[in-house]
Amino acid sequence: MAEQSALADLRRGDSEKPDAAVVRDALGVGVAVGLSGFAFGVTSAGSGLTLPQTCALSLLVFTGASQFALVGALATGGNPLTAAAGAFFLGVRNAFYGLRLSQLLALPRAVRPFAAQWVIDETTAVALAQPTRRSARIGFTVTGLTLYVLWNLTTLLGALGAQAIGDTRAWGLDAAGPAVFLALLAPMLRTTAERAVAGAAVVLGLGLLPVLPAGVPVLAAALAAPAVLFLEGRRAAANARGARTETVRKADETRGGDR
């Protein structure tokens, strides 16, 4: 495994990327997304969480989608356990990112527990986009550090601002969280299957909203993923059978022509 990893790095070394370019790209992502922590601070404070609770979520959880899901469910009167479950399931994806990044970054064991806190969508995207292990480490570190500092700072400012302006719903700021979440999610929907999952999840979530307790429709919307994957598997199997049937038919025609 070590030899294969070393060979992969050597092959990628032909397209070395300057460190300055990696830092510039990482800073761009970190600053752009980090500023949206202000929206989370406003949304969290508007949902009834205190300033320490809001800041603790950003410091300890540090995954925007899960944080927005949690405070969004609480804001609509959802059960705290249900809200936490929805946030947990959204955060599980970071564990899969970690499996990939552990091979790519190959960080020392002593550093891994601290680096794990920064394994999120943005740091993973920046790291995977780099041509070498060195640039991947730089991209991951700069993105993680920039985003972590800015996200927590703007969370604090957003929560303080929400307390100063009073009812965030009167200003329409309760929509800030969902809007930022959609802005982060939309660019990730690249394939037809991903768009189908997103569409089905929206239909499930909105359709069940009037009949289920707050927070539960979010969990039910997760059923969209296995449903779409099942249908995709059925379609792929049908296409494979059709291709085999066509191959056999052409083979029979060829043999008949030879006779």
Rank of each mutant, 00 (worst) to 15 (best):
A69I: 14
A237Q: 15
G48W: 03
R244K: 14
G30H: 02
A75G: 09
L145A: 08
D19E: 12
T132D: 02
S15W: 15
A87Y: 01
T54P: 10
R190C: 03
L204R: 12
A222R: 07
A237P: 13
G166P: 12
L223Q: 01
R241W: 11
L185F: 13
G166D: 08
P187A: 10
V211F: 12
V248G: 07
V218C: 11
M1E: 15
V218H: 15
Q103E: 15
K250I: 11
V33S: 03
R93N: 07
V23S: 00
A238S: 06
E253W: 14
R235Q: 14
G205K: 06
A106Q: 12
L74T: 04
G161H: 07
V197F: 05
L231K: 01
P108N: 01
L57W: 08
T143W: 00
A73L: 09
L70K: 12
R100W: 04
T192Y: 14
G37M: 04
R195A: 05
N152L: 03
S36P: 06
A170R: 09
R133H: 04
A21F: 03
T191M: 06
S5V: 09
T247A: 14
L105C: 00
L209I: 10
R235E: 14
A115E: 00
Q117R: 10
Q103W: 10
A237H: 13
P131T: 07
P80N: 08
A127V: 00
A225W: 04
T123Q: 01
P18I: 00
A222L: 12
L209E: 15
R195C: 09
V42A: 11
F88A: 12
V180K: 08
S36I: 09
P187F: 07
L153F: 08
V211K: 04
T155M: 06
Y97W: 03
A39D: 05
T146I: 03
E194Y: 07
A65D: 05
G257A: 15
G199V: 06
G64A: 12
T124V: 05
L184H: 06
L204N: 06
I120T: 09
A95L: 14
V203D: 02
L153H: 04
Q163I: 06
L208Q: 01
A201G: 08
L212V: 05
D9H: 02
L231D: 03
L90S: 08
G242V: 02
E122S: 05
W118Q: 02
V218P: 10
L157I: 10
A21T: 04
L209N: 15
N239M: 14
L153D: 06
R259Q: 14
G177E: 04
R11A: 15
Q53P: 03
F88H: 03
A115Y: 00
G91C: 13
V248S: 13
F89S: 11
V180E: 07
L182D: 08
Y97V: 01
P18K: 00
L189E: 06
V142I: 08
A56M: 13
A159R: 07
R133N: 05
G177R: 02
A224I: 03
G13L: 08
T168N: 13
T254N: 14
F230Y: 15
A26T: 00
G161Y: 09
L51D: 10
A225I: 05
A32R: 10
R109F: 10
